[in-house]
Measured scan of single mutants.
Amino acid sequence: MQRVNMIMAESPGLITICLLGYLLSAECTVFLDHENANKILNRPKRYNSGKLEEFVQGNLERECMEEKCSFEEAREVFENTERTTEFWKQYVDGDQCESNPCLNGGSCKDDINSYECWCPFGFEGKNCELDVTCNIKNGRCEQFCKNSADNKVVCSCTEGYRLAENQKSCEPAVPFPCGRVSVSQTSKLTRAETVFPDVDYVNSTEAETILDNITQSTQSFNDFTRVVGGEDAKPGQFPWQVVLNGKVDAFCGGSIVNEKWIVTAAHCVETGVKITVVAGEHNIEETEHTEQKRNVIRIIPHHNYNAAINKYNHDIALLELDEPLVLNSYVTPICIADKEYTNIFLKFGSGYVSGWGRVFHKGRSALVLQYLRVPLVDRATCLRSTKFTIYNNMFCAGFHEGGRDSCQGDSGGPHVTEVEGTSFLTGIISWGEECAMKGKYGIYTKVSRYVNWIKEKTKLT
């Protein structure tokens, strides 16, 4: 034993070699072989497995989906700052455009905790909710729209109204504003409101030439003092309507412009014939205590009207009353817009006519005020429907199939267009061939041609 100890002390290297040989010859039971080890760690190889990531292109799944990435790591994937920024906006807080917040056709661009709407022409605001041009839906104005110097929408209202708090709607500024039905039992019968379409306001006024200088022999019209197929109006439903009495009662109609003036057809009036105007009328054979009678003290036909040349060209006249009318729910003026808007309103496509005229061709006159909704007829169809001249200051309205029309005794009465609950004068009943005849239409004086003249002559002093 002493000898062994001496050998170990003198030859430590020998001992180490012996131990190493023993270990190498022993069977290893701690580690699995290569094949079995792979069965336990069965993990798919990654895209760049075996390579240094710093030297390969980034992978979106590896960089940002398996674990949260930084902007720089995302930049490695896209290799483009702009594309990385677009991805980053949604990656950080989701897609803010998912709810489609942009209105009126706006395009949404996502941002971090926010979004941006790219608005089409005519709109602005956070969600493109603000109209900035009158060309689109009248700028959301209830009545009139004008573009300011910086191309912003400025709404306005006709006389007797003021802008509401929203700067879009119009509200009454006087007790009985024009064009409004205020009798409670008839307010439910107000005709369907007309909503502004998209309009090209630059070209809204037709490029028409008034044929002022045409000389033409007097034409022989049949029954051209021209509501057939209409309905009984309720008291106060058309408070701007008046009836004219002269040699015979209810020979023509008219509309209240203001307390002192009536507008009617020029062919209705004769110099030297006494005319009485009755406002607030409903049943011409009954006294309903809503009527107001006034005498006409002055007749002003349009300066281009000449019955000797043509009885229905420039067929418009103004009547001055001896005493002002007292405005109330049964006696209310009709609204008159400017030339541009009167023309736009007419193009809405349908209007209402009213009167006490004959209820059928050569038949009896109506006792109760009649009204009828009539569609506008395109000019080409209008011209083809008659052998008589249709001037540019006239328009056609009615039904091709016949059966409904204005008729004798309705002449001078109103053709009105309702705009968001307020009625505007767009025409004056003038003439036609018979009444409600198939293929024939009622012919009306186009008020847009005469609004400046009306307003100039009827100013209240």
Rank of each mutant, 00 (worst) to 15 (best):
K387P: 07
E288G: 06
E418N: 11
V183E: 10
E285P: 12
L23D: 02
V30A: 11
I136A: 13
N135H: 13
K188W: 10
P414T: 10
S107F: 05
D93S: 13
W88I: 15
L321F: 00
D150L: 10
R75H: 14
F121Y: 11
D322L: 02
G427E: 01
Q408C: 12
G13N: 10
E270G: 09
T29D: 12
R449Y: 15
G105Q: 05
T190P: 08
A9R: 15
N304L: 15
T290G: 06
C396V: 02
T276R: 10
V242D: 00
G403I: 14
D338C: 04
G160Q: 03
V368F: 06
L103F: 06
N258Q: 03
N42E: 08
T342N: 03
S406R: 11
E129H: 05
F221C: 07
I40T: 15
F55K: 14
L211H: 13
E340P: 08
V277H: 00
G442M: 13
V296Q: 01
A317D: 00
G94T: 15
E86L: 10
Q408K: 12
F224P: 10
G105L: 03
C145T: 03
S385F: 15
R62Y: 06
Y22G: 05
L369G: 07
N5C: 14
L14D: 02
G439D: 06
Q216I: 06
G125R: 00
K109M: 08
L383C: 08
C145S: 03
G421S: 05
N138L: 05
E142K: 06
G160C: 02
E66K: 06
P177A: 09
L20G: 02
T426R: 01
A192W: 10
G351P: 02
I336E: 00
A173R: 09
C108F: 01
Y305N: 03
T225M: 07
Q57A: 11
E401R: 13
N283P: 04
C268W: 01
G236E: 03
E281V: 14
C18H: 04
G363D: 08
Y22H: 06
I275V: 11
F238K: 04
E281C: 10
E98M: 09
A9L: 13
H303W: 08
A250G: 14
Q237H: 08
E124I: 03
N166L: 02
Y391H: 15
G351N: 07
A317R: 01
A192L: 13
L23I: 12
N222Q: 11
V77L: 11
E281P: 08
V447P: 03
L163K: 04
I297N: 05
H282C: 06
H400A: 15
R379I: 11
Q2I: 08
N147F: 11
S169G: 08
R358V: 05
I40K: 10
V228D: 07
P235E: 07
C69V: 04
E142N: 04
N80R: 09
I336P: 00
S365Q: 15
P197K: 14
W261D: 00
E208P: 11
E208W: 08
Q219P: 13
L369T: 15
T290S: 11
V4H: 13
K446I: 00
P175Q: 06
C134D: 03
G403Y: 14
I428Q: 03
F123A: 03
N304E: 11
G236L: 06
N203M: 09
Y47S: 11
S114I: 04
F55M: 15
N295K: 12
T332A: 11
S169V: 06
L325M: 03
F251M: 07
F238G: 02
I454L: 07
Y91L: 11
S220W: 07
R294L: 02
F388V: 15
Y441T: 07
T29E: 13
S11D: 04
K438D: 13
Y161V: 01
I390H: 13
E76H: 15
D249R: 10
I309F: 11
F251G: 05
Q237C: 04
A397N: 01
G253S: 07
Q96V: 09
S114R: 06
V30W: 12
S365M: 10
A308N: 12
D200S: 13
Q96W: 10
G160E: 03
R162M: 09
F55P: 15
T133D: 09
L325H: 00
D131W: 09
F238V: 05
F71T: 15
D212T: 15
S182E: 06
K247V: 14
V30F: 14
E79R: 12
C28A: 11
T190S: 15
D212S: 10
E61F: 05
N138H: 06
T386S: 12
V273F: 08
T29A: 08
A250M: 06
Y47D: 07
K45N: 11
L346P: 02
T461W: 07
T158G: 04
L19Q: 02
P375Y: 11
L425W: 00
T271Q: 09
T133P: 06
F251S: 09
I15E: 02
G439H: 10
E288P: 06
K459E: 12
F345Y: 13
